[in-house]
Design a protein around this nucleic acid. Structure first.
Lengths: 228, 228
DNA sequence: CCTACCGATCGGTAGG
DNA sequence: CCTACCGATCGGTAGG
């Protein structure tokens, strides 16, 4: 992702600039693997996320992903060294984005009650799972077994960071009596209830993410509907 | 399964009876597909369920399943006409078993409070997902997308039967105020919390199915621990 | 249920 | 990023 930050504006002669490279001034050249490839890499990630989510990792072919990105069959391997690497990148992207969104969400509730903080966490979690462009995290939730050990432990660390955001809030709610179950199991059950929504939520139906948030808050901490 | 019910005791000469079939007396012959094959079919189902659960359907080969059942690569197709048929059979078996266990469980709570009935449903649900020989239902939960339309709708009917067992109980608890969320969403969230336990439950760790049941009851309906 | 096999598909690569 | 391709694997089958 730093590859994008350092991208200079497009040179006037467009694609031909690649065929007749000018001597780079200032910044050092990027290696082949980090080179700027416009948004093709991001296109691949989005296509892969959508396909992995709907068909599963093993049932999706790299040819499917290439076609969905308007490429030929071998081309994804110019951007990613293997199908596995693509899966891992999808999950990493999903977790980084989810973490950033939850941190913002919590910050906006600074000084508010634990109840409001939980509501914010729940609402953002539903948005991450069910909102627009929301294929990345569901892939992580449902395809974790396709990772190798190293990838798995790296993602586990990100998941631990994510859960760490919930713990103090849940602890407070347990102390006040609003959360009436051991905090450890409560966290697992609560997140499970939210994560499972991926299986049944239908954006074309009546229920909205706000409805789900209200229902979850009522169910878990007995909070009646509150406009946030 | 009626194929087994009608199975006569093993003939004294054992396997050779197949090579020199005697003229059948009484009952009509079974067709090839229904014929009694001892417990080989059940062995295949068990092996398939375990592999589908741990690796996923698409990542499991029919050769894996054959090997786990002590057969050669082509032999599963003597018992099932396709890999898909095996998956479907695993799921059907899982749902039929789960339905039977929940009906027994509810019947044992006849006349009891809705709270006790919910506790029984939750406890049995955890047992079905996490107990011994519990691969069949998790496969159904996590591999539904691998089914074709006809199989999917047949299983949806069984799932509807299963959920129908919960609805009157949840309605009662909503009426008393113990369940504080719209019943429809509450059911989806609650079952999601239970279903997700497949992802994190570890039988070798301290928490037991009874612990999970207590935690779930406390979380969802505020019931403090009660020995059932 | 085994043996031997087929056709199709798949992840990945060389070379441009 | 495309073209052309390879080796391996996979679901499934014929014939016994």
């Amino acid at each position: 992702m730093p590859a994008h930050a350092a991208t200079p504006a497009l040179s006037p002669n467009g694609a031909s600039a690649r065929l007749t490279p000018q001597r780079p001034r200032g910044r050092p050249r990027k290696t082949l693997l980090e080179r700027d490839d416009g948004n093709r890499r991001a296109d691949l990630l989005r296509a892969a996320a959508a396909l992995f989510r709907s068909q599963g990792f093993a049932a999706t072919t790299t040819r499917d992903i290439a076609a969905a990105s308007g490429m030929q069959s071998g081309s994804p391997f110019y951007h990613f060294k293997s199908k596995d690497a693509l899966l891992f990148a999808v999950m990493q992207e999903g977790m980084h984005s989810a973490l950033a969104r939850q941190r913002d969400s919590l910050q906006a509730q600074h000084g508010q009650t634990a109840l409001r903080q939980l509501r914010a966490l729940v609402h953002t979690h539903f948005q991450v799972l069910l909102g627009s462009d929301s294929d990345f995290v569901p892939v992580m939730l449902y395809e974790a077994r396709s990772l190798n050990a190293a990838q798995h432990s790296e993602l586990s660390a990100l998941q631990a960071e994510y859960e760490a955001l919930w713990i103090p809030v849940l602890n407070q709610l347990h102390a006040t009596g609003a959360l009436r179950a051991p905090v450890g199991l409560a966290r697992l059950l609560l997140l499970g209830a939210l994560n499972w929504s991926v299986q049944w939520f239908d954006a074309t139906k009546r229920a909205t993410v706000a409805d789900l948030t209200d229902a979850a808050m009522a169910l878990f901490v007995g909070e009646s509907t509150v406009s946030t």
